[in-house]
Design a binder for these strands. Structure first.
Lengths: 236, 236
DNA sequence: CTGTAATCTTTATGA
DNA sequence: TCATAAAGATTACAG
C-alpha cells in the first residue's frame, strides 16, 4: 500500500462525514476554510451541498456568490450535490423544480462547474475518496492503456505494434509490413523519408520510399517522425 | 412569448419523456441519433442515463466509448443522470458504489464532461427545458466554452506507442522513454543489446545499454528483437 | 471504473 | 551453473 489519501475538511462539516473519510483510510485534516468545504489539492476543491442547502442558498442568493469564489480560487472546483431529492420533499418547494434545474443549468453552462451527485452522506465520502485517488495517486497520466493480447502470432504482434503509430490502424499497418518486411524497417523508412515543401513553405509531397504509396502523405510522415524522434524535453 | 424551444430526441427515448417535453411547450423533433440522446443545438447535446444504465454500461465497457464519441462530436456535451439511486437498488450492486463514483470522477476530471443529476423522468424533462432555454433564448451572458480535456501530448502518444512492445505496459514504457529520450532510441537500444549465454546455452544476462536496467532481462530483449527485426516470412 | 486472479519475467538465494 | 522461491509488472476477466 502506498501513502494514504489526504483531504482538508472545513471544521463545520458534519462529524459523521469526517469519520467516514477516516474509515476509508484517508488522512483527514481539519481547518477553518473560508471558500470551500473540502480541499483535495491546491487545484481541486469543492463545496458540498445537500438538496436542501441548494434551495436555501438559492433563495437568499448566496449560491452563485459561493460558486464564484470557488472558481476564482481553485483551478478545478466542483460541487458535491448530496441527496438532491431532499430539495423537493417539502411541499412548498415542489413548485420550485424549475428554479433548481435552472440553477444547475446556470452552474454548468455559464460557470462550467462540474456537479457530482450522491444519494447520501456515506456516498459523498466515497466520491471524495475516489476524487482524491485520481488527483493524488499515480493515475496522473491520462493514458488510454493499450492492452496487447499475449498469445498471438508474430505477425499479429507486429501489426499491433505498428498500430501505435499516429493515424495508423490495421489497414495501414498491413500495408506497411507487407512492403517493408519488418517493423524496424518500417520505422527506418519513415525516418528516412523527406517531405518536399513548396516555395511558400507548405508541404507538397514526399520523396523516398513513400513517394508512391497511397495514404501516406506528408502529414503522416511528419507526425510519425515527430513521434519517433522527438524527446519530450524539446517539445511541449 | 417568443419562439418555442426546440429539441431533437432520439427515437428510442421513452415516449413519456417526449410527452413531458411537449407539455412544457417545446417543439420535439424525433430522429434516429447515433451519438447522443438529446440535441439542444449543434454544439450542445447529451446522453441520458439512469443509475441502472450507468452500471450496465459501465460493466460492458460501453460507457466511456459513448462519452468519447459525445466529446468528439459536440462542443458542449453533458450527461443527464436520472435517478442515480437506482444504481444501487439491486443488492448485488450495493457493494459497487466505489465503481460508480470512480466512473463519475473520471468523467468529470479526465473528460471534463459535466453531469446534471435529476431525480426522475419528469425532472429530466424540466432540466432539458431549462438548458434549451439557456442555449436558445437570448441571455445577456454568453455561454462559456467548455475547457476540453487536454489533448494527448506527444509524451502520451510515445508511451502509447511503446506499449506495443512485448510485455510492456505503462510502467515499463515510462522507464524506457525516461532513459532513452525518444522512442526510436529505445528501439535502437533494444536492437543493439546482446544476450549473454552460459556455457550450456542458457540465457544469463545482457550486455549493452540494458545491462544495469532493472526489470528488462534476456527474455524481454529476445522477444522484442524478434518483434522488431523478423520478417514474417522467416518465421512461422 | 474497480478488484482479483492468472501469467510472465526478473531477481535473489542457496546448493 | 542450476533450481527454486520471491518480488514486480502486465494481462485477463468478472462484476
Amino acid at each position: 500500500m502506498s501513502k494514504p489519501l489526504r483531504i482538508i475538511v472545513d471544521h463545520r462539516e458534519p462529524e459523521k462525514l469526517k469519520k467516514r473519510l477516516i474509515k476509508l483510510g484517508m488522512e483527514v485534516e481539519e481547518q477553518q476554510l473560508d471558500i470551500a468545504d473540502y480541499i483535495v489539492s491546491d487545484q481541486v476543491a469543492c463545496e458540498r451541498k445537500t438538496g436542501t442547502d441548494l434551495i436555501t442558498s438559492l433563495m437568499d442568493n448566496r449560491l452563485f456568490e459561493q460558486i464564484d469564489r470557488l472558481i476564482e480560487t481553485y483551478e478545478q472546483p466542483f460541487l458535491l450535490l448530496e441527496d438532491l431529492s431532499s430539495a423537493f420533499e417539502r411541499t412548498e418547494w415542489k413548485k420550485r423544480k424549475k428554479h433548481v434545474y435552472g440553477a444547475l443549468t446556470y452552474i454548468f453552462l455559464r460557470r462550467q462547474v462540474p456537479v457530482i451527485p450522491t444519494c447520501q452522506m456515506s456516498e459523498t465520502a466515497i466520491a471524495l475518496n475516489r476524487i482524491a485517488s485520481w488527483v493524488q495517486e499515480d493515475h496522473d497520466d491520462p493514458i488510454i492503456a493499450r492492452k496487447s493480447p499475449k498469445a498471438r502470432s508474430l505477425r499479429d504482434n507486429q501489426l499491433f505494434f505498428l498500430q501505435g503509430l499516429h493515424n495508423t490502424g490495421l489497414k495501414k499497418a498491413k500495408i506497411l509490413i507487407d512492403k517493408f518486411e519488418s517493423p524496424i524497417e518500417v520505422l527506418n523508412a519513415i525516418l528516412d523519408s523527406n517531405v518536399i515543401y513548396t516555395k511558400t513553405g507548405n508541404p507538397k509531397g514526399v520523396e523516398g520510399t513513400f513517394k508512391n504509396l497511397e495514404g501516406f502523405g506528408p502529414k503522416y510522415l511528419l507526425k510519425n517522425q515527430e513521434l519517433l524522434r522527438l524527446s519530450d524535453k524539446n517539445s511541449q
